[in-house]
């Protein structure tokens, strides 16, 4: 069984590749079909943020049996411009790209754990986890 996958992100077609690989890994880990869709959707949003704001980066998908509950961890990492105001970026309806502003707050809602680390000029790393029910 694969424990970790790295998906390089350089263009919008990598959004589809990242979410398909994430779904496949989550399926191997035994997630339910509605959880698979939530995980794939979250990966899609996080990967799109990389493509739109940083142009390139990577998505790391891994099983995580450590911690209180086993599950899947998705890390979306880039060395792009960073987020100026993280609090606002997590608010529903706020977007600097003309989007719906539902990406990051939506991902936070549909995943069980959510951590974001961003610094201006240094990039952004988002780590999310979905627990297996």
């Amino acid at each position: 069984m694969i424990n970790q996958l790295r998906v390089p992100v350089n263009s919008d077609s990598d959004i589809v590749i990242a979410r398909q690989k994430g779904r496949a890994l989550a399926e191997q880990l035994g997630f339910s079909s509605s959880q698979l869709t939530l995980i794939a959707t979250a990966i899609s949003e996080l990967t799109r943020n990389i493509v739109y704001y940083a142009k390139c980066g990577e998505v790391i998908l891994q099983r995580d049996d450590n911690g209180a509950r086993p599950g899947i961890v998705v890390i979306a990492r880039d060395e792009g411009p960073g987020i100026e105001d993280i609090e606002r970026a997590l608010q529903k309806g706020y977007s600097t790209s003309g989007g719906l502003g539902l990406g990051l707050p939506g991902v936070r809602r549909i995943m069980d754990e959510f951590q974001i680390d961003s610094a201006l000029g240094r990039g952004t790393t988002v780590r999310v986890k979905k627990w297996k029910l």
Binding site: L36, T37, L38, T41, L100, L102, G106, R109, I110
Partner: peptide
Amino acid sequence: IQPEVAFSMVQLGL
């Protein structure tokens, strides 16, 4: 729209 997709859309606020 598939049931799982509808579920996920509502969760995301779409």
